[in-house]
């Protein structure tokens, strides 16, 4: 596949050591980059004339529970020019779970990062409006973390009185 090689080559040329890992599983190319370079990589992918990944389809995170770098933040970006969906990953520590927001580059990342913050408690710095999306304000936990039980914590969400 020519396009995949081109993407990897271009990223390696511009970011060198920051490209940590490249995997290709079931024809999905995913590239792991350093956390501190994520905004630069995003900017490059969007603006490079050969790549033009202009649409961010999805931002989410994975909680690995026992790994040293507990969370992996995953971005799916799409290029109309090449008709290709690329996956970018970055591993972050648990304390503190913090990385820069890419919502200044891809507008659509705004809500996805809010969702990720709500579900995993990952803080996106420079995000314009980092609030919870789904859970009510004042809820203390982050449901998609592996240490949160499926049935929730009793009493953490208020219910109206019984009539």
């Amino acid at each position: 596949m020519e396009l995949k090689e081109l993407i990897v080559e271009k990223l390696k040329k511009n970011f060198g050591e920051s490209v940590e890992e490249v995997t290709d599983f079931r024809d999905d190319l995913s590239i792991t980059v350093s956390t501190n370079k994520i905004v630069d990589v995003a900017k490059f992918l969007k603006e490079d004339d050969d790549l033009l990944f202009v649409m961010c389809k999805d931002v989410t995170a994975i909680d690995w529970a026992k790994r040293k770098k507990r969370f992996t933040v995953v971005y799916h970006v799409y290029s109309f020019k090449n008709n290709y969906t690329l996956r970018i990953k970055t591993n972050i520590d648990e304390n503190p779970p913090k990385l820069d927001s890419v919502s200044s580059i891809w507008l659509s990342a705004n809500w996805y990062e809010r969702e990720t913050y709500d579900m995993y408690g990952i803080i996106f710095t420079n995000h314009p409006d980092l609030r919870r999306t789904y859970m009510p304000e004042g809820f203390q936990y982050h449901p998609l973390r592996k240490d949160f039980p499926v049935l929730g914590i009793p009493g953490s969400l208020p219910l109206p009185e019984k009539i």
Binding site: F25, D28, K57, D58, V74, H76, T85
Partner: peptide
Amino acid sequence: VGDVFFSAENPKGELGFYIV
């Protein structure tokens, strides 16, 4: 072991599943 992203065209737009 691995992760895939698959999306299909739904009436509302592109529905994607990212499975790890």
